[in-house]
């Protein structure tokens, strides 16, 4: 869980790089709009985007459940699937973090190991790719909203993602970031953890939504759909008006679709903890 050794920023990224979108299983099945937002951002940044056919999963649930052989098999499939692109980009620090751990699955200096290292060297989370690799400066836009940002664990501690999404969001005029307390503390999702240890997970996500609401933001934003579904699900169960979105949806200005866990697109409202608060 230390920062990946494979985050080598190229001196000169190729012109109009050929980028494979790694859609990730959660975005694929639960929130395709995040995929489309990611493509929109990559294209705006000058990339040629392709979506390799028949994608499934990075293998993290198997890896973290101790099923190493299953993980190896999935890793080999993904290594092959994403072999021929300049970069592999996903709207998730967690799944890209898993790709960066592929080398650990194989014997050092084996063929698989080297291929895994090579893939890890090309694999980037979207906000990190846009800023660290492409040095992308989005065109100035305007969105009047107050958000708070949750730093998902894998992105933060495996890929060093903290400043990148904030840097991109700060280019949006009238968007204010209210940092919440313990933004870097786990939300309690943890893949299968939230099913295996529901009570502990519930306390962790409750702490998180409490902190989010205390920030007086209208919108909770993050870069990993698993965490976002966990937090949105808790906010909705608590009857909160706080909305939850993936960072790409805001950056790509795709706010016409309902926020996570909402049936329709409702206007942003002040949070429960501060009903008198107006933006």
């Amino acid at each position: 869980m230390s920062v990946s050794p494979y985050l080598q920023v190229p001196q000169q990224p190729p012109h109009k790089p050929r980028v494979a979108l790694f859609i990730t299983c959660l975005v694929d099945s639960m929130r395709p709009s995040v995929g489309f937002a990611t493509i929109k951002l990559l294209e705006a940044a000058g990339c040629h985007v392709e979506v390799p056919d028949l994608q499934t999963c990075c293998g993290q649930p198997a890896y973290n459940s101790g099923a190493k052989q299953d993980t190896q098999k999935l890793a080999r499939l993904n290594i092959k699937k994403f072999a021929d692109y300049d970069y592999v980009v996903a709207p998730s620090g967690s799944c890209i973090g898993m790709l960066h751990q592929y080398p650990d699955l194989f014997e050092k200096n084996s063929k698989d190991y080297k291929q895994a290292q090579e893939l890890a060297g090309r694999a980037w989370e979207i906000t990190s790719f846009l800023t660290d690799v492409l040095q992308y400066q989005p065109a100035p836009t305007q969105q009047s909203m107050t958000i708070t940002y949750h730093d998902s664990c894998a992105g933060l501690r495996e890929l060093g993602i903290h400043q990148q999404p904030r840097q991109l969001l700060e280019r949006i005029d009238k968007l204010q970031i209210n940092e919440m307390a313990e933004a870097d503390t786990c939300c309690g999702f943890g893949g299968t953890f939230c099913i295996k240890f529901p009570d502990i997970s519930n306390r962790m996500v409750s702490n998180k939504t409490d902190n989010a609401e205390a920030s007086r933001a209208q919108l909770l934003v993050g870069g990993d759909l698993g965490c976002l579904m966990n937090m949105a699900g808790k906010l909705k169960r608590q009857g909160s008006h706080m909305q939850t979105r993936h960072v790409t949806e805001i950056l790509a200005n795709m706010l016409d679709i309902p926020a996570i866990g909402e049936g329709e697109n409702t206007p942003l409202r002040p949070t429960n903890s501060d009903l008198g608060y107006e933006v």
Partner: peptide
């Protein structure tokens, strides 16, 4: 409604929180 209150499987999730619903069909 955009979310589920309970599920036949994964009760650990819906015991404490809603499950945001998918957007109709997969990205792919």
């Amino acid at each position: 409604k955009g979310r589920l209150k309970s599920l036949p499987v994964g009760r650990g999730w819906t015991l404490w929180r809603d499950l945001p619903a998918p957007q109709g069909s997969s990205f792919q």
